[in-house]
């Protein structure tokens, strides 16, 4: 009786393991085809946001090597005609990772800001308007003093403010290092 029960349990374990292995192989095969396409699309999306944050840009260099960059600055591109820098930044909000791109002109002012990940529920018109307001508050500024903090997204807004300050500092470093 006991043996029968053990055999039944073992059969169940073996069947489940085999199904998991087949599932893993299938997912691996699909991922092999899908992953490069996803990566390419993500990169194109990132590059598209660079033109949004530096609207007059004529082109961008390959990503610069980051020496002494703050942890929040992930990738930096230099505008080819010397207009400034476009940076991809990420910061921890305490809930999740907030990603945005920022364009900084050669004279150290913020030319544009675009979120590549959002910290509001899709369709929440109130939060969308608040984020528009936040982005507008940084445009043309050379520091973060007047940056807006969104009510209900205080931690995210503060994390973003700190990351923008990091980006401005790093842009200054890059210019001085030239």
């Amino acid at each position: 009786m006991m043996e029968k029960k053990t055999l039944s349990l073992m059969k169940g374990a073996v069947v489940l393991t085999v199904i998991c292995m087949v599932a893993a192989i299938l997912l691996g095969v699909v991922n092999r085809f899908a992953a490069p396409v996803i990566e390419k699309a993500e990169n194109e999306k990132k590059l598209a946001t660079l033109s949004v944050v530096l609207p007059d840009a004529k082109g961008f260099s390959d990503p610069l090597e980051l020496e002494g960059a703050p942890a929040t600055v992930k990738t930096v591109y230099e505008e080819t005609s010397g207009l400034g820098y476009a940076m991809l930044c990420e910061t921890e909000t305490g809930f999740d990772t907030l990603a945005f791109s920022i364009g900084i002109t050669a004279d150290g002012k913020i030319a544009g800001l675009a979120l590549t990940s959002v910290f509001y529920s899709a369709g929440d018109k109130g939060k969308e308007a608040a984020i528009e307001n936040l982005i507008d508050s940084y445009k043309g500024q050379s520091d973060t003093e007047n940056g807006v903090i969104i009510s209900g997204a205080t931690k995210s807004s503060n994390a973003m403010k700190a990351a923008i300050a990091d980006a401005l500092d790093y842009a200054k470093q890059l210019k001085e290092g030239k």
Binding site: V15, L16, A23, L26, L27, V30, A35, V37, I38
Partner: peptide
């Protein structure tokens, strides 16, 4: 558990393909 693994596999396949294309 077997059904969930099978369903989750197909959902992930659809998710990966939709993300890509």
């Amino acid at each position: 558990p077997c059904y969930i693994v099978i369903i989750a596999t197909f959902v992930t396949v659809v998710q990966l393909l939709m993300h890509a294309y």
